[in-house]
Amino acid sequence: MNTGLSPEITVLLMGCLVDLSTDKQTQINQYIQQQLIDWKRLDTLADRHRLKPFLYRTLLKIPNAPTAFVESLKQDCRITATDNLLKLQHYKEVSALLTEHAIEHIPLKGVYLAEHAYPDSSLRISGDIDLLVGKDDVFRTIRLLQNHAYHLSKKQDLHWQQGEQTILSDLYEVSLFKPFFNDSHFDIDLHWKIMGFNQHYALFDLPYVRSQPEFSTELMIVLLVTHHGVNNVWQQIYYINDLYFSLKGKDINWNWLLQELGRYGFEDVFLAGLYWCVQIWNLSLPATVQTLIGSSKIHSIAEDYAQSWESDKANEFSDLILLQLTRLAKAQTKPGRRLKTYGTFLSSRVFRYSLFRVGPRLIYLPKEVGFLTIFIRATQSLFRFLPARSTN
């Protein structure tokens, strides 16, 4: 695989396999033999990109892979498999609880994809349990979960004290946790809207997902591209795997999907993800879509996204915000859409609530005074941004 990326990232990409053919085994074995692999860095990157299960299953059959490294992966994968099973079982219990109380909901991302998209659920490392509910069921769901030993975080408990209307006005999700064993806990991210880029750019909710049952698969792809591609700039390789397994073997209405993503200016973000699905997984696409991802513009956008794969840590805070802006702006073909990208970015930084820490206390300021707090938030962002930059 000629990617122009480091040997460690290249090994990770080559290791994204379900079935290892003899030819592929020979190719990987020769590559490892010819390249100077930093195995410690490979372990760090495999962890960051949530690819240890794939890497272990692949390297297990590669003679030139260091035995100690493969054994370490084996131990990590055992822990991951157990964790996945616990989270899957817990999700089913939570889903049954919500169904029992007539709360319509749909699962998103990790746990759902592990069970329904991946060929083996142990291949998809899951984090939080993400659920989407209707706006009218938000507080009923929160109270129900609180009655079953879930707690809001300190920051969101502060929002809770401001009242229901403040939560609906300020937030689009809340995080709850349930202590499990020692310091471990189950986490639920409860969404009632999915934000695309920022709250003034695009918002998706349960009625949107349920609006056209004949395009239910395509609508879930829109949400996945929004979260993985737009909001998180494809910065982890498992995001690409999620896209691949969500598409593989599905009867996709490509014209409708591209048109729907185009409504929000997300089409090229999606095509960049597809580019890497082809590079990594050799995803079969219709000729018209294959032509689209073959353009020099999509190649350039896809390579921009891949630049962040080399970092030992995922981008966050100001770094991530800046990448969201630059990547989405570059993906726009219409001047009006690019103007909206910059315009909503600015407005979303001003008209929003703020939380400030004063000693041990958190202070809440409503978005109505956004103009007064923007300078403080800008200073906070600057202090987060500069140290990240200085280490590069």
Rank of each mutant, 00 (worst) to 15 (best):
D130W: 00
I142H: 02
Y118F: 06
Q165K: 10
G134H: 03
I167W: 05
V209W: 02
H200K: 08
E164Q: 15
S153M: 03
Y172A: 13
S169A: 12
S184H: 10
I194M: 13
V174P: 01
H185F: 03
K154D: 07
L176C: 04
Y118R: 09
I125C: 11
D120Y: 10
N182A: 12
I188W: 03
Y201M: 09
I125W: 00
P119N: 15
L168Y: 08
S211L: 03
L171R: 07
S153N: 11
H185R: 05
F181Y: 13
F186L: 06
D157G: 13
S122R: 11
L123K: 05
F177H: 13
D157L: 10
Q162Y: 09
E218H: 06
Y208M: 01
K154F: 08
H185P: 01
D136Y: 07
Q212W: 06
I194L: 14
Y150K: 08
G163W: 02
G134P: 01
Y172S: 13
A117W: 01
V138L: 07
H148Y: 11
D128N: 06
D170V: 01
T166C: 11
I194E: 06
N198V: 05
F181P: 02
E173G: 10
S216W: 01
H200D: 08
S175F: 03
A117G: 04
V138F: 01
H148P: 00
F139L: 14
S126V: 12
L158D: 05
S175E: 09
H191A: 11
D136K: 15
F215Q: 04
S211G: 09
Q212H: 13
D128S: 08
F197Q: 06
I125F: 02
G110P: 02
Y172T: 13
F204N: 03
D157W: 07
L206V: 05
D137A: 15
T166M: 06
L131P: 00
L113R: 00
L113Q: 02
R143A: 15
G196K: 04
Y112D: 15
P119E: 14
L113P: 00
D205C: 12
H151T: 15
L152V: 06
L145M: 02
G196M: 08
I167R: 08
Y112F: 09
I188Q: 00
S184G: 05
F186T: 08
L132P: 05
H185Q: 04
L176E: 02
